[in-house]
Design a protein around this nucleic acid. Structure first.
Lengths: 190, 190
DNA sequence: CGCGCAGTTGATCTTCGTCAAAATGTGTGG
DNA sequence: CCACACATTTTGACGAAGATCAACTGCGCG
């Protein structure tokens, strides 16, 4: 765990290698995964703001190689490097768009559509290995948290998708066999 | 309507007076209100990004007085005025935090809690007039869209809250009589 | 007086979350 | 190699929250 929701912010992280999940908690048990980060991504920038407290937690999903940047240094850099400042602003803007799209989906889409959307997003973000499996291992628990459902429901939907021959599973890896059908599920009633 | 989701971005708006809702659509009928803007707020900044297309719509809730800034000019200004760039970045950061908090609430909170949260947010944002009513008229339809529910459900919950003497309604205005009880509803199971 | 429309309420229906049991897997020590 | 404890996955049954549909109210207006 890189940092925990509620802790004071003292810097940001660059991910050199490995995968990280960024999540928000509700009560003891429940969580919502807000984003995944892979090599090249920033983590902890959500702490920047008036409240110097992390609004989310970040935990490594595998062994990661991180670069920690002290907050004071980072902010000083921003003051000087306007390219970076601009890039960071654009990054926030796109994350905001993404977040609000997910929000709408959460409200109006049935679980199956959300899972479809999530799988496509993961496929796009992490790509596939030679055999066509998504380059990431995701426990069903995490998939559930990412789509805002429970473990059992996520499980059932995945079973359905396998029955329908839209996806396939091998060990901890998932393959999307029929992206088009997922897109249909995603778009349904939209 | 200031602009519509999907249209190309050609500038941003400053609100001098009046209230605006920013919303995202799903299908023909359904929408989700993402944010309200009042005098002093920016609208249309969500269009900034790689895709030069508005990800949301904005419509005036009453007569508004706007200041339109051409996109090219705005971006040129950002290049020069680093204070502004920095402020805008911070603004995005806080909107992102807000958005993700709402996202979690949408998933884990029951409707009643979400309405409580929404009322408190509106109270905080718009304040009250002399008689204690929130300085904003909100149709139940909009309240429903804002909390991610249907008209009927929003209506029922409001009735409950009135029964419980937590809020009061006069014409189109809403008064929060017992903020503490709303906070309890908001925090429940969190 | 009748029509239309927003506000209101009631009745049902679906989806999904919850709980619990069954099946299956995994490790450990004898 | 087996027996046992324990964890994880899978399936089933049930219930609750809320969406949907439809009817009813009051009210303005032609």
């Amino acid at each position: 765990m890189l940092f925990r929701e509620g802790e004071p912010v003292n810097g940001i992280y660059f991910v050199n290698a490995g995968k990280v999940k960024v999540h928000k908690h509700w009560g003891e048990e429940k969580e919502l995964i807000v984003r995944f980060a892979k090599e090249g991504d920033i983590v902890g920038h959500r702490g920047v703001g008036s409240e110097m407290v992390y609004p989310v937690s970040a935990t490594a999903l595998e062994t990661v190689d991180l670069c920690f940047i002290d907050l004071a240094f980072f902010q000083a850099t921003l003051k000087v490097n306007h390219e970076l400042l601009h890039a960071l602003m654009m990054f926030y803007a796109s994350e905001l768009q993404e977040s609000e799209k997910n929000m709408r989906n959460l409200v109006h889409m049935p679980v199956k559509g959300r899972i479809a959307h999530a799988l496509l997003a993961l496929l796009k973000k992490f790509g596939t290995n030679e055999e066509g499996y998504i380059n990431m291992t995701l426990s069903r628990q995490d998939l559930a948290s990412y789509t805002g459902t429970t473990y059992e429901t996520a499980f059932r939907i995945m079973s359905e998708l396998i029955q329908e021959d839209i996806i396939a599973i091998s060990g901890k890896y998932i393959a999307v066999k029929d992206p088009a059908r997922l897109e249909i599920l995603e778009a349904e009633a939209g």
